[in-house]
Every structure is written in structure tokens, then in C-alpha cells.
């Protein structure tokens, strides 16, 4: 695209660039305080800084309650991500390839959680799990997180399936392949990077999710619930910030990997 084709003058463009820079600073500045104060040798999160320490991180390592919460979150995150990806893959594929009325209805419903606030998802599932006798538990949180992550997995996987030229599955069908073979041998391999990306995004969603988990947690808290319980005690704030920094770093790593996978998946498709 040539510069002449775009509206706006050179100076307008420079101002816009500066605005975007300021926007990014606003986006990151408050978040950047958390790593900053996690290395600060003071209970209080205030300026001036009091000197460098790794003590808060050392405190993390020996904390048994924290380790248990981390384990719970990992287990819930992996289970929810697996189920949400499985549902996202089948829902998107059924919508695009089968296209029956049921498949289209299911695809519309699967995107609906975007339009439901977390607090409503949480209490609705709380009623369900209590009624069927399951009660608040890890499994209940998994179900909640599948719902929260479902729109993302459906949209990400659908985008990659739609980019596959229709001639590919059609050629395979003409040559006698069953629908299952077309799915397993052609569409699934092509959608695999997107599915992996969807899995990671679903995992991150679950791992950070607080609002729904708050209603559905039984006796074992997830990591965000543990953090919430610690926010009340001013004394544990530096430890929470050290924990937050560690989570931040891990989340950034996973999000970057998911993005790279998604792009590679789109590039791999024949055009």
C-alpha cells in the first residue's frame, strides 16, 4: 500500500504514531509496576524504591498452599483447554462441512458465552452442579472454563478451517475417501497449528480466570483464588507481586508461542 493512497498527511501520520506509542505506554505502565515492586525491598508498594531483593521470590518456593493452588490450576487449565479445543474443533468442522441446522445452531450457541458476563455463567453453573449432585469442585470449574474458552477456540479453529480451499476435501471425496478420512487425513493436519494455538489460549483463559471459578470452587482454590485470598493481607502483597511476575512471564511466553503457531498454521495452507 502506498502512502499516497492512504488518507492523512505526513504530520498526521506522525501524531498517530505518537498516539499509538502513548497508548501502549498506558497499557503497560500499571502492569509493569508489579515486576518492579516484586524486586523492591519493602512491604509497601510506593516510591522511592528501597533497594533490590530476591527475598519475595524465595518466599514463593517454600509456600505449600501456593504450590497446591498451582497444581489445581494446571490440572483444571489442561482439562478445560483439552475439552474446549475438542468442542471447538468439532463444532467448527461440523458447521463448515456438514452445515446441518443442528450444526449451525450449535455453532451459534457456542459463541454465546461472549454475551454472558462471568458472574452469570458462574451462578448458572453453580445451580446446575448443585442440582445434579456434583457440587462445587474442580470438575465444576473445568465445565465453567470450557464455556468461557469455547468462543475463542471455535473462532480460531474456524478461521483456519475456512482458509483451506474447498477443492482439497472435494478431490479426496471424489477419490473415494470417507468423511472421517477427509477429516483425519486432510483437514485435521491442516488445522492442527490453529488447534494448538486455540488450546494454549484456552489454557491461559482458564489459568487466569477468577470470576467463574469464584462460584464453582470447592475445597481446593485455583491460583487466582489463592491470590484473591492473599490480597486482603498487606503483609503478603510483595509475595503476591512476585507470584504475579512469575505468572506474567509464563503467560507472555505461552501467548507468544500460540501466536507464532497460529501464523505458521495460516502460512502452511496452500493458497
Amino acid at each position: 500500500m502506498s502512502a499516497a493512497a492512504t488518507p492523512g498527511t505526513g504530520s498526521g501520520r506522525r501524531w498517530l504514531g505518537l498516539y499509538v506509542l502513548a497508548y501502549l505506554v498506558f497499557l503497560y505502565l500499571p502492569v509493569a509496576l508489579i515486576p518492579l515492586f516484586s524486586f523492591n525491598d519493602s512491604i509497601q508498594a510506593a516510591f522511592p524504591l528501597q533497594g533490590f531483593t530476591l527475598g519475595w521470590y524465595r518466599g514463593l518456593a517454600g509456600n505449600a498452599a501456593l504450590r497446591a493452588a498451582l497444581g489445581t490450576s494446571l490440572m483444571i487449565g489442561l482439562s478445560a483447554a483439552f475439552l474446549a479445543t475438542l468442542c471447538g474443533l468439532t463444532i467448527a468442522y461440523a458447521e463448515l462441512s456438514v452445515g446441518s441446522r443442528l450444526a449451525r445452531l450449535v455453532a451459534v450457541l457456542a459463541r454465546m458465552p461472549i454475551l454472558i458476563p462471568g458472574v452469570v455463567v458462574g451462578i448458572a453453573l453453580l445451580v446446575v452442579v448443585n442440582l445434579i449432585g456434583l457440587g462445587p469442585s474442580r470438575l465444576a470449574i473445568v465445565l465453567g472454563h470450557v464455556l468461557v474458552a469455547l468462543p475463542t477456540t471455535v473462532i480460531v479453529i474456524r478461521g483456519s478451517l475456512r482458509a483451506v480451499p474447498r477443492s482439497l476435501p472435494e478431490a479426496a471425496r471424489d477419490l473415494g475417501a470417507s468423511e472421517a478420512a477427509v477429516f483425519a487425513r486432510i483437514m485435521l493436519p491442516l488445522a492442527l497449528p490453529a488447534a494448538a494455538s486455540a488450546f494454549m489460549l484456552a489454557f491461559l483463559t482458564s489459568f487466569d480466570e477468577f470470576i467463574v471459578a469464584f462460584f464453582l470452587a470447592g475445597t481446593d482454590p485455583t491460583l487466582p483464588l489463592y491470590i484473591w485470598s492473599q490480597l486482603r493481607f498487606p503483609k503478603s502483597l510483595p509475595t503476591v507481586m512476585a507470584l504475579g511476575t512469575a505468572i506474567l512471564a509464563a503467560s507472555v511466553l505461552i501467548a507468544a508461542t500460540a501466536e507464532i503457531l497460529r501464523r505458521r498454521g495460516l502460512r502452511r495452507l496452500p493458497s
Binding site: 497499557l27 502492569v31 508489579i34 489460549l201 477468577f210 491470590i227 503476591v240 504475579g244 505468572i247 506474567l248
Partner: peptide
């Protein structure tokens, strides 16, 4: 930031 902890973004 969308993929970083919501709770921590608020807490910040």
C-alpha cells in the same frame, strides 16, 4: 495484556 492475569491488572 489480554492474556495476562485480569486480577493483577486490576490490582496494579
Amino acid at each position: 495484556p489480554f492474556w495476562t492475569s485480569y486480577l493483577l491488572r486490576v490490582f496494579a
